[in-house]
Amino acid sequence: MWQQFRSDLYLNFVKDDRWQYLTNGLKVTLIVTLFAALMGIILGFFVAIVRSTCENTGRLKILNAICNLYLTVIRGTPVVVQLMIIYFVIFASVRIDKTFTAIIAFGINSGAYQAEIFRSGIQSVPRGQFEAGRSLGFNYAQTMLHIIMPQALRVCVPTLCNEYITLLKETSVAGYIALEDLTKGGDIIRSRTYSAFMPLIAVALIYLIMVLVLTRLVSLLERRLARGTR
């Protein structure tokens, strides 16, 4: 049995340098996750500001309507479908880099979820904080910047980090546009060796380790933030 295990291991990972499917795939997964998260932060932050401003002051009505449409569509459809629409429909005529396409798709998707996280963070800050800022003479933007945002971010950082962990796992559907991410890498090995167990379990383990490490980091961060508020 040990013999069998060793030869399986050799067949799936060592022969023809097949382990490189996993390492290269991991690289792609990390790149897509990182940049999609960053794009999502920018998008989400912008949308949250527009939505909160409209709620608080009644301004930016048109922008707010566009943001609401964006949230409804993105959160109401599966990310795989969005990914495929962007690759096969929107970028159909231009042969664009697949990694880049995936970043765009997951970035747009994550932005919608992050927007709601930012917004609930902003709303969790008591109204009196806003009034205190305004009564001192800060304008709306200054009050948001100096008083509301620092408190809101502190509230939503743990939730945001969990969103990034989810995003990391969600990028595993990138194979639908034939992007060779970690999952696809494992799948390619499977198709070469006709043995599913080793490569898929290896893929699962790599995801699991990354998620465990990130979760641990989030809880450390959470404790750090809690100390700040006292």
Binding site: P126, R134, I147
Partner: peptide, 16 residues
């Protein structure tokens, strides 16, 4: 507003 200081029932100090 800079010339009109305001004190609230709930203090509203900035907790952070």
């Amino acid at each position: 507003r800079q010339k009109m200081g305001m004190v609230f029932q709930q203090f509203n100090l900035f907790p952070h």
